[in-house]
Amino acid sequence: MDKKIAVKVDDLTVAYNYKPVLWDIDLKIPEGVLMAIVGPNGAGKSTLIKSILGILTPIAGSIRIYDKPYTKQRKLVAYVPQKGSVDWDFPTTALDVVLMGTYGSLGWIKRPRQKEKKAALEALEKVGMLAFKNRQISQLSGGQQQRIFLARALVQNASIYFMDEPFQGVDATTEIAIINILKELRKAGKTVVVVHHDLQTVPEYFDWVTFLNVKKIATGPVKEIFNDNNLTKTYGINYKVSIQE
C-alpha cells in the first residue's frame, strides 16, 4: 500500500484507574478512507478517539498525525463528541455552537468575526440547519443537535474528522443526510473516522473498518475483513450478519 498514512497509533495503552481499557493498540489509518470503529460496549472505541485527540493521556504509546504529534497538527483535525457529552440546556444558539468550531484556528483571546460567521453559516446550510441558526439549542430535536455538531466540525475545515457515534438517536432522514456529508468529505480527500454501532450498515456506509475490543482485532478494507470471523472475535459470540453488497 503506498497510500499516505493520516493517523498512526503505536503501542497505545490507556487505563482508567489502573485498569487498561485499551491494550497495546497499533493502528494505521490511511488518508482518504471513511472508517468505522466497531466493537461492543466498553471496547474502548471512544477512548481510542479521545486518546488520539489528546483529551485523555495514555500510559504508553505514541500517536502521530501525518507523522507529527497531535499538538502540532490540531488544525488538521476536527472532532464530533458524543451528543450526550454536553448540556443542551446551555444558554446559547445553534449558530454560536457552530462558531465554536472556529475557536481552534482563532487561538486564545481573539474573537470570531465576519469571516468566521460566514463560514459557520455555510456549514449550517450544508447540514440543512440554516433556518435554525438562532434557535436555542435545547429547542432542537436530537437529530438537529447532531447536525449542529457535524456543522461545527465542518467549519473547522480539517483533513481528518473524528466522530463519536454521530448516528446515535437520530432518525433515518438525518442518518442519510449525515452519511452523505461524510461521503462527500471522503470524496474531497478527507479522512473520516466514525465510532459506529449499527453493524448492518457498515458495508453500505464505510470502506474501511477497525474491529476493537480492548485490543485491536483487525483493521482494513471492509470488503476484505468485514466477515463473521472478525465479528465473532470482536463480539465474543457467534456472530452472523448477512452482508448485502
Binding site: 483529551i55 454536553v86 446551555f90 465554536m100 482563532l106
Partner: peptide, 22 residues
C-alpha cells in the same frame, strides 16, 4: 472580556475544548 470565548466553550464542551488546544 479576554477569555469569554474560552470560558464559554470549556463550560459547554470540555472535550472539544481540549481537542482544540485550550
Amino acid at each position: 472580556f479576554l477569555f469569554f470565548k474560552e470560558l464559554k466553550i470549556s463550560t459547554f464542551d470540555a472535550g472539544l475544548t481540549a481537542s482544540l488546544g485550550f
